[in-house]
Each structure stands twice: as C-alpha cells, then as structure tokens.
Write a protein that binds this DNA or RNA. Structure first.
Lengths: 233, 233
DNA sequence: TATTACAAACCTGTCATACAGGTATGGGAG
DNA sequence: CTCCCATACCTGTATGACAGGTTTGTAATA
C-alpha cells in the first residue's frame, strides 16, 4: 500500500513482514498471511513476497512448509551456525578464537547450571557423561554426545541466549572435533577428556559452582592444548 | 547435475552454493557464478537459484547487488541482530538475559582489550567516552556513542567473534536503551554512567585489565539496576 | 602509445502466468 | 455426532519477458 524507505522491494517486504509480526504481537507458531494476500497488500508480485519469506526463513524468524502458511518460528541456532562456519572457512575467524569465546561463555554457563539445573537435567547430564565413556571407540557417536552435553549444560543455565550461542558453534565444532580427537592418541589422554566431562556433570549435579567452573576450565585447557598440538591456528 | 539429499530444491541449491564457496576456497569479495549459469549447472530454474541466493544473503554469507554478480561477504552482525530482536519480541528472550550474556562477554572483552588494544583504539575509546560527556542532552546521539564505544572495545579484543556477538545485541539495545536512560532521571545518576565509560576507557588505555574489569563490572551493575528500576523483566 | 567514450553483452530485479502437489475445511454420509 | 472426502486454498517450481544496472572490448581520439 505504501512506498517504504526503499532499499529494494524485497527489503521493504522483509521490513513490512517483520513489522507485521511485531505490531500484531505474533508469538511462535502464529501464522502469517498467505503469499498472495501479502503480495496484494504490499503491491508487489508474489516473487518478491516469496524472496522476503525465504530471507526471513534463512534467519529462522519464520518457518516455511509447503501447503501451509508461513509461521512465526521459535529460536534456533541453525542460521548462526552457518554464519560462524562461513566466517571460519573464509579465514575471518580461527578456531582458537572460537575456543576463547566458548570458554568465556561456558564458564558462566556452568556456574548458572550448577545453581539452576533441574533434577532431570542433572540426571541427563550424568547419563551423557557416562554414555561418552562407553563410546570411546565410536568417534562419531562420541562427538554427538559431547555436543549434546554442552548444549544441555547451556539449557540448564536457563538463559536461551547462552543456548543459542553454544548452538551456534556446533556446526564448526562438528568439523574440527575430529582433529582434536586425533591429537589425543593415547588411551590416557582420551580417558582424561571423558573424565573431565564426568567431573563437570558431577559438580553440576552436586550444585557446586566452584568445582564446576574448575572442571570446565580444565576441560578447555586440555581441549585448546589438543588443538594446538594438532596445529590448528 | 546430481540430485542431492533433497530437502527441497532451494535447500539443495543453498548447500551446493555453500559447498562451491568452500571447495573453491572463495574469500570475501570473490564473486560467484551468475544465476543463469548456476541454474543450468544445478538443473533448476532461476527462481530456485534466486531464492537460494536470497537465503544466503539474509545470513550475510553473500552480498547481492543489482547488475553485479553475487560476492562472498565479510562477517557482519546484521542478521544476528535481527534474530535476537525477534527472540525478544516473541518473548523467547528477555532483556535481563541479554545483559547477563553481555556482562559475561564484555568482561572478557575488556580484559583482552586492555592487553591487545592498539594505540589508535585507546585514543578513539577515550575520545568516544569524552564525546558522550558532551552529549548528555542528546539521548539519540548519546546512545549511538555508547553503542560505538562497546563495539570498538570488542574490536580491540582482537577476536571477531566477540565483535560479532556484541554487534548482535545492538539492534535490541537500540530499542531498550532509552528505557534505561529514562530511569536515570537525576543529573547525578547520568553523570555516573558517563563517568563509568570514561573509567573503562582510561583503564584500557592504561593497559590495566584488572581496573578495566572492575569498571566494566560497575557499569553493568548500574545498567542492570537501571533496567530493573524501569521494570524491565 | 595511452586514454577516453561508447555500444554490445551480460547480469540482476521484478512481474505475470501456469501447473503440480500438499493442506485444511466444510458438508454430506453413516 | 462422528468420520471421510471433495474442494478451495496455498506453496513449490518453471518459463518467458522486460527494465535497468554493470562490465568489457573496441574503436575513435589525444
């Protein structure tokens, strides 16, 4: 209906749709108007509306599904994960820098988790640490357990932003984790890594923030050393 | 040429393009094939390629411009900013949680900045803090200076991931900052906020991490209190 | 020879239309 | 009142067209 601060029709459409979400206080799950009705309302072709939808979907602000109307999305780290991966692949970020951020974030996370974790989370965390011990010979599975462990820890912090950030690193971690694992060739060094996770889980389960932070700190010392050994700048 | 792990043609195209960037080691600024050639190569319509491009552009993985070919993009927090805003508007994140993350991150940032800052950054930081003092009566300008201050600090940490995260909070901060400002109605409380920024700048310029952390901590204590006073959950 | 100007080739932005196939909804059959 | 299905609605993809921005090679010029 109106001409916006024109940065291209698609940009304007993105703004209009975002505003529509805000102005109507749409919550996750709520559905948006159809492409056809939006294209009529904004006086643009369906092509433009579709490209705007795709953009918002790429940022996980809305969900698209064939046949169904677009819906407001819940928080998801998928997009951030891709962005971080891109940054690393294009040499704009290196792995050490990511580990510095992770250490900073996860030190805080483990403190909060030790204080706020639910009993279920404590149990699940211990179970994950234990499962890792049983998966020493299955690196792929071990890696997924490791990732789940850190993500669950973040959830236990009761701050979705921490969860988001930890999740954002999962994509690139999947690509670098095997490198770190290979640089821990001896059973002893591998056991140490598993034991550290168990220590963290136990400290969180015991609601002991100090001990949890100490274990997490050890975990990162060891991980960063492993990566350096592997020559990852 | 081949049929991928089909999650829709557009998804496949996104994967193919991402892979193209990785496999060819494209760096920021490098250009991608044209829509037409990609659509031929992937056996899909230009529509599909365009939607894939839009998705990647939304995540700031590529840059689009009319007439020119798509190019690999440099790291940018614009997309993350929108995602965080969306999270807050849909009540999936609250402002206090963001401040907890910011405090965690910025405490680390200020430590690194005190160690790694260039002389230019030290000068600019002091200049920004001073400029803030002169803008007490121009909230809009003051806010932008404040944002620039924290972003420059992040840059001085020499870790682009920190810069990215701090940048990601700018969007929502622009919307909540005025609330915090209004809850500091007395000249004294306003002076305190400005003085704190100057303290941070001075400590970083003096390469004094401890003092820098202390001042940053004070800054967040004060900010969070201001927000709580304003009733921001 | 070096430079400038320009036209042709190329490329993206947007639109209209068409159709296949997934989804939702109301109304009729039981 | 419940269950099922026809139908209207909606999204996914393809094609063709055209306007307008960009690049590039060539030819005229200094």
């Amino acid at each position: 209906m109106e001409n916006q601060g024109s940065g291209g029709l698609v940009s304007d459409a993105i703004s209009a749709i975002s505003r529509h979400i805000r102005d109507n206080d749409l919550m996750p799950g709520d559905r948006l108007p159809s492409e056809a009705s939006l294209s009529k309302e904004l006086n643009v072709s369906r092509t433009v509306v579709r490209e705007a939808f795709r953009s918002l979907a790429a940022m996980r602000i809305i969900d698209l599904a064939t046949g169904k109307r677009a819906a407001v999305a819940t928080l998801d780290h998928g997009a951030m994960s891709l962005m971080i991966e891109h940054g690393v692949h294009t040499d704009q970020i290196n792995v050490q820098q990511i580990y510095d951020v992770r250490r900073t974030i996860e030190t805080r996370i483990v403190t909060l988790a030790a204080i706020r974790r639910s009993d279920t989370e404590a149990t699940d965390l211990l179970a994950l640490a234990q499962a890792m011990g049983h998966a020493v010979d299955d690196p792929a599975r071990l890696m997924e357990l490791d990732l789940s462990f850190h993500l669950l820890l973040a959830q236990a912090s009761r701050n979705p932003v921490f969860t988001l950030i930890v999740g954002a690193f999962q994509g690139i971690t999947r690509q670098t984790w095997p490198i770190g694992w290979k640089s821990r060739p001896t059973p002893a060094s591998r056991e140490l890594m598993l034991a550290t996770h168990m220590d963290i889980a136990r400290a969180v389960a015991a609601s002991d923030p100090q001990q949890a932070v100490a274990s997490m700190s050890l975990h990162f010392d060891e991980s960063v050393r492993a990566l350096l050994t592997a020559g990852l700048s």
